[in-house]
Design a protein around this nucleic acid. Structure first.
Lengths: 118, 118
DNA sequence: GAAAAAGTTAAGCAATCCCTTGACTATTGG
DNA sequence: CCAATAGTCAAGGGATTGCTTAACTTTTTC
């Protein structure tokens, strides 16, 4: 069982805040400066900067400064890492349901049970 | 405008904790009692119960008590809600890149690339 | 019916989160 | 130059988290 859990904590934590999700949504439409990100966000600039830093530390966003303006853009790899985890859970759940259906359909003949209970 | 953004906060927050993700992973393999969930988790039972409550409040998990044992199972709808949000962001980003490619490819001859600019 | 098993409740505590204010640094435009 | 713009740093405060211990209830089992 591969454990790429290191960044997942930060990615999900970053996405748990509505302001940060709003920032990500805005950035999927194209890069933006910190002030542009701040404008619709009813909070001070340092607060927005902190959100951007959380997003950067999660890998969801990268930014670079040119002159006096910092331009942020979304980094879809982290987005996809979270997506992959969710899809894996959902498909595992669906596969289990399928197996359950099989068992119920062929309930007359139980196959080798896979439960591990010593 | 659909307003299912209310639970997204809770869903992502719930998934931001590795113990809770471990619980979800275990539950995708089938229902389990609180004690079963607690066994691999190196923390006390009340702590696990609190995690289960967080997962329930996010809609990711449902549980019911029969006798003295509470049986938990995963509720894939919430899982899918998070998946949907992530997929929407990623595809929005990809579509934007495609448009950008078009613009760059047809840079010599501005064809009908601009749709929304009167 | 006493004791074990499974869970629940309450309180408390250290760490972290989200946001603010205030001061401060660069960069740019006139 | 000088002042507006864009961002940054530092400190702090109130709320929330993630755990713990201790006491308790409700089943089940012997």
């Amino acid at each position: 069982m591969p454990n790429h859990q290191v960044p997942l904590d930060r990615v999900f934590h970053a996405l748990a805040d509505p302001s940060r999700r709003a920032i990500v949504e805005r950035l999927t439409a194209g890069p933006a400066s910190v002030s542009e990100l701040a404008r619709p966000l009813r909070m001070t600039l340092p607060a927005v900067l902190q959100h951007v830093q959380v997003l950067e530390s999660s890998g969801l966003v990268v930014s670079e400064k040119a002159g006096r303006v910092r331009t942020c853009r979304v980094e879809p790899a982290a987005l996809r890492a979270a997506e992959v985890w969710l899809t894996a859970r959902r498909t595992a759940w669906e596969r289990r349901l399928d197996r359950l259906d099989d068992v119920l359909a062929g309930a007359t003949e139980p196959t080798t049970t896979e439960e591990d209970r010593p």
